[in-house]
Amino acid sequence: MVGPVKKISNNSKTMDYEEEQEQELEVLKSIYPNELEEIEDKVFRIILEPEESDSSAPLTVALRIEYTPNYPEEIPNISIDVINGTLNEAEKEKLNFELINVAQDSLGMAMIFTLSSLLKDLVTSFVVERKERITKEEEIRVLKEIEAEQNKFQGTKVTVASFLEWREQFNKDMAEKEKLEKSSAALKKEEAKKNKLTGRQLFEQDETLVNSDATFMEEGDVTVDASLFEQEIVYSEEEDENNNVLELVRNNTD
């Protein structure tokens, strides 16, 4: 004879879920005494450090959990807080995908410790990958520097064709340089001719040259007999300029 079937009320199920949640939370507190932070009723987070650390690229995350009314028969609300460092979009997508898959497989049982362990392992793998990538990039950088330094002493390989090309360009450059130097020298010579002053021009532009002789005569240092210059003297064309100078001297002494 089959006894009476007891009907389980929804309230009873709810009480069972709440009891399971409370029991799980107590266990988690004992496992993570310093890492678990209660935010509000049925909401908490567990701070997770990777197994391997990297000071150049630190990464610390927290698994945030919010119990839903029917947990563990349904997946709790799961999110990830980045405490230190950064996660790129690809890493975030991978974490969410892996956590949801494991949560689906764990329905009907306490799963928060499993999710925490999974998240810690994934974060550790990210840190290891980053360290390996940084190490590889540094090795490549050093190799490039060494190669560049070695190339300074190797120089450029010379072939017959490259030498002939260089010699042709060298001859062109030297011819151009010589042409410029000759042109510059001719220009300077022409300018010097244009700017050269005759004796008369010097006296006309600077009267002190004439007055200086007159001053000497006034002081008695030099005596000049102007009548000597009145004698008829025939000068060559080359001496015309000097005659003009003497004429200026005589006029000033008068």
Score class of each variant (00 low, 15 high):
T253C: 06
T135K: 05
P33W: 04
D240Q: 09
I83Q: 02
L99G: 03
G220I: 06
S212I: 03
I31V: 15
E178M: 13
K152T: 10
Q104Y: 14
L228R: 12
E139P: 02
L118A: 11
E89A: 03
I39W: 06
Y67L: 12
N244F: 15
A175H: 05
D221Q: 04
V128F: 00
K182H: 10
I65W: 03
K29V: 00
E230M: 03
L248I: 12
I78G: 05
K188F: 09
E24C: 06
A175L: 14
A110I: 00
I8V: 15
D254N: 11
K120S: 07
L107Y: 11
E165D: 15
A161M: 05
E20Y: 01
E190H: 10
E98R: 14
F203P: 00
K6R: 10
E204H: 03
S184G: 10
A110Y: 09
L202W: 02
Q205T: 13
M111Q: 10
N252Y: 05
R250W: 09
K120E: 12
T198K: 04
V102H: 05
E74A: 13
R250C: 08
N243A: 14
E52M: 02
M111F: 02
V123K: 00
L180R: 14
E129Y: 02
F216N: 14
V128S: 00
F97K: 13
S212P: 01
A214K: 14
V222T: 06
E98D: 13
V5D: 11
T86I: 06
E247I: 11
S117A: 13
F170W: 07
E165V: 06
V249P: 01
A103I: 04
